[in-house]
Nucleic acid binder design. Structure first.
Lengths: 153, 153
DNA sequence: GCTTGAATGTTCAGGTATGAACGATTTCGT
DNA sequence: ACGAAATCGTTCATACCTGAACATTCAAGC
């Protein structure tokens, strides 16, 4: 038998010395939970969160977007978008098209299959958003919104 | 010039139809911000967040922990811990030791260098925690804590 | 005592992310 | 008009993470 462990959740992390209320780590764990939830529902339509985010971006833009623009919106490195679009292209959800006005630029365009899946993903995500919002009264949601704004320090 | 883009932040995501207050996405963005902040400060002592978390676990346990126990606490796959410990071992921060009572088990043990770095990391993290808490009044922290508890749906 | 089943850590393949280096192109200052 | 600087996407090395498959070891039941 294992005589030292504590295999469950470890309590020490959230117990800041003599303090009441939300901790940094409770916050991060809640976010983890939400991300997991999103991953679960997207999985039902065969998408990962990063892939869905790219499709959503393209769907909402209603026109092909340059990879650089995608990287900016996703707040990630350009090289990440290169690979993500590689995989999306391999899945047949996206096409790379040349930008006629800038020969450096490459744009990503939704294929019909991509557009369909983007929509199905959006439906799944909407369900999670409703779940999330249903957990709070309108007043609480407003409260939470205000608290979230404080976090940029 | 690029005639279609919107290279800044895209506003469409947070604008749920006819709704006030916090959205799912505002929440996730706030969490991203915090994670970035943590990554920044840990970087100053040469640690990543995942590496720090393992060191913290070992530091707090005050004895070698089996890789399985680490995986449970970090809530991650066992194979992840295997690789993380590989890297920590390569960095000289951790040692693999045999468990005398179970020949399957492997335990991770802090080296002196690992213990030192764990402590330096903890100092950095404490600073972020204080930053976070300073952003709220005690009442708000309590409020936030209550709201976070609602998130498990 | 064996056999079966569970648990442990590793390996492998693949997805997601970063930053540095690169070649191709565009832009800008002069 | 031309050279320097900025921008674009890709490639590469690396980190982090997962799930499936695997060999080894342990625990239980008969």
């Amino acid at each position: 038998m294992n005589d030292f462990v504590g295999t469950e959740r470890d309590p020490s992390r959230d117990a800041a010395p003599s303090e009441v209320g939300a901790t940094l780590f409770a916050f991060l764990e809640a976010a983890n939970h939400l991300r997991t939830r999103i991953t679960e529902v997207l999985c039902r339509v065969g998408l990962s969160y990063p892939k869905y985010e790219v499709l959503r971006q393209l769907r909402e833009a209603k026109e092909p977007l340059s990879l650089g623009a995608l990287a900016e919106c996703q707040q990630c490195a350009r090289s990440n978008i290169t690979q993500l679009v590689d995989r999306l292209e391999a899945d047949g959800l996206v096409r790379r098209v040349q930008d006629p006005s800038d020969r450096r630029a490459v744009r990503a365009e939704l294929t019909p299959a991509g557009a369909t899946l983007a929509e199905q993903g959006a439906i799944q995500i909407a369900a999670v958003r409703e779940e999330f919002e249903a957990a709070f009264t309108p007043a609480e949601r407003k409260q939470l919104g205000a608290l979230l704004d404080r976090i940029r320090f």
